[in-house]
Write a protein that binds this DNA or RNA. Structure first.
Lengths: 357, 357
DNA sequence: ACGGTTAGTCGAAGCGTTTCGACGAAGCGT
DNA sequence: ACGCTTCGTCGAAACGCTTCGACTAACCGT
């Protein structure tokens, strides 16, 4: 590995001159500049990242802090990561992936004071999140994906859940649906203050109220089995439901499966809308899902860009931005079935059509 | 940020002593050790990662090099990443995610000579991959996930595709299937020498030959639409096929959908086996998919552990390991339909739909 | 009682950069 | 022709750590 000394010697200049050529912090004559550049090329010189980091107190490394449990990442989270990674790499920064549980602010504090990160993006933020405080105390530039309850003085990007839910509900109500059930994330997620779960819950209540409808929400585990159970619970509670709104990308398939088993056609008998879903997933089933597709990669990218801006320029103001999911109407929603003839729990006139999907 | 000097002063020892306490490279008396430790605790001292890296020539950072195109990562690749990240973090290493296209060895070379990485794991290796040579020239410890054509002198872990395909074929043949079509990745992936695509193709030919059956392979784009097209092509070519073997996690849902549309029941008329698939995905559809589930996280972990071993101990020999996918029989396979009588036997409980993740 | 180890500690020399203060040589206005 | 900036360059001091070569005691066997 050639060092700056080697380059300096070969170009017959001092080390500092070489440094100035590299960083452009001081004027250098065209003549020496090219001489230095040539020397570098000839030696295949690459500046040493550690030394540079030590001397300049800027590592050009940013951290992406996220929980990483056994079940891996969902499509949306993966999109955050790839979006952020692409943005970092494009700006010449390295991106370190750090698995940090939502519950250990101490690990976060240690990371922060190691001086390895110029700044961090924190994912999967809880409404009340100790890690945020730890990071702030450490004085580390910080951008959240998601947000805490109190966001004053914080930079974040997040999905606009309120808007997203309203759009979903409006779409269904516009089709004539009145008895709409919302399948949220798990009860434990809600209890833990998981933002998306909590915010969509509240937004759903508000959206339904606006239409003078009664909001029924079911919490569901994040799995197909959870979805099946949730749909059963939904039907038990609202036997004549005509639409299901789901936030839970994992549960949605269970919901569809259970609907098929019960002989309720989609969208003939029941319309289904999936929120915060990727198009690939929505296209997987037949009929394809009407969905609110999440701007995952965009969020990751925007968060990273905001962080880098904070690192480069004036550490000035915070970047706070909400991006709604966009409604993409596909085959899983349709006009509400006409007012039910029979009452109660009766099965449906699913009739002829086999419940294939 | 407290430095070692501060700790040393407070503990009334020299800087080097503090360092020895930290690294354990030289014996330190119990008395001073505790004195130093106390000083650290009181000051909230954290060693500076950059300085340590510079002085010791070991950054404790490893790279995970992988292509990251727009469409993001599949479930299997994501599992590699999380597995590797967990292993790295458990060993006190940082993991840098570097998006590098399969086609730019120069970017890789630059990364390698920057001295930021102690070693790297390279994912999505092509059969003939310039990046491997670049990394080797740079003398950087290296482990592959996947493998090149010639693996002498290389460390890698990979899925045992040969074994996996044989198991899949044997399972189907054991159920009496004779006309089996294999849906592979896209033609362009195969042409590019994408290992999984190439190796499964060859293994499929071999496996079928062993049973004296004719191997029919269809290349399919990685999407539901691609899967539908592939199934159509398959039926066109082998109208009375009784089983489909798919390698393409994205296409599988299109295949199932198209099967349903054509009124072929799964597994009544056609059995379906999905290879290199995660249980979550397999469970998404109804009936759940018989699948060969990929040991994704395990591969990531093993690769990382092999790399770290190489970093710590003797840079000795290479770690070369193949892990087969394990067959998990679910509802999508069954006995072959009796020698063709009529076609459509009636409606089916078709099945299928689902998602990714 | 004496050279030879060994345990425990220190001081200083790096590691490869950045960055600060200096300094000579031009170039400027007047 | 005079001081004054500005330009271009240099040397040296950090940055916070690891590591090497000493050095001092205590301990060993003989």
């Amino acid at each position: 590995m050639a060092t700056m000394h080697d380059v300096a010697r070969r170009a017959r200049v001092s080390v500092s001159t070489v440094s100035y050529v590299l960083t452009g912090t001081r004027p250098i004559s065209e003549a020496t500049r090219t001489r230095v550049l040539e020397a570098m090329a000839e030696l295949g010189y690459q500046p040493n990242a550690m030394a540079r980091g030590l001397a300049s107190r800027r590592s050009r490394i940013v951290g992406l802090l996220m929980p990483m449990d056994e079940r891996g990442l969902g499509a949306t989270e993966t999109a955050f990561v790839t979006g952020a990674a692409a943005a970092a790499s494009a700006a010449g920064y390295h991106l370190v992936l750090s698995p940090v549980g939502a519950a250990d602010p101490d690990v976060v504090r240690r990371l922060a004071t190691q001086g390895m990160f110029d700044g961090v993006v924190l994912m999967e933020v809880q409404v009340d999140d100790g890690r945020v405080a730890a990071l702030q105390e450490a004085g580390l530039p910080l951008v959240l994906i998601g947000r805490t309850g109190d966001t004053t003085g914080l930079s974040y990007v997040d999905i606009d859940f309120e808007q997203t839910v309203h759009e979903a509900v409006d779409h269904l109500v516009g089709l004539g649906h009145r008895r709409i059930v919302y399948v949220n994330h798990s009860a434990s997620a809600i209890a833990a203050g998981y933002g998306p779960a909590v915010r969509t819950r509240d937004a759903f209540v508000a959206a339904m109220a606006r239409h003078r409808l009664e909001p029924v929400m079911i919490a569901s585990e994040d799995s197909a089995a959870g979805g099946r159970a949730a749909l059963s619970a939904a039907v038990a509670q609202v036997p004549d439901l005509t639409a299901v709104l789901a936030m839970n990308e994992s549960a949605i398939f269970g919901i569809l499966g259970e609907l098929a088993v019960r002989g309720r056609a989609v969208p003939g008998d029941v319309s289904v809308v999936s929120m915060v879903t990727s198009p690939q997933v929505a296209e997987l089933v037949h009929p394809a899902l009407t969905a609110l597709t999440s701007p995952g990669a965009a969020l990751g990218r925007i968060a990273m860009e905001a962080l880098l801006r904070q690192l480069e320029g004036a550490a000035g103001q915070n970047h706070q931005q909400l991006l709604p999911c966009v409604l993409e109407i596909r085959g899983s929603t349709g006009p509400a079935a006409p007012p039910v003839g029979g009452a109660g729990g009766g099965a449906e006139p699913a009739g002829a059509d086999p419940p294939d999907r």
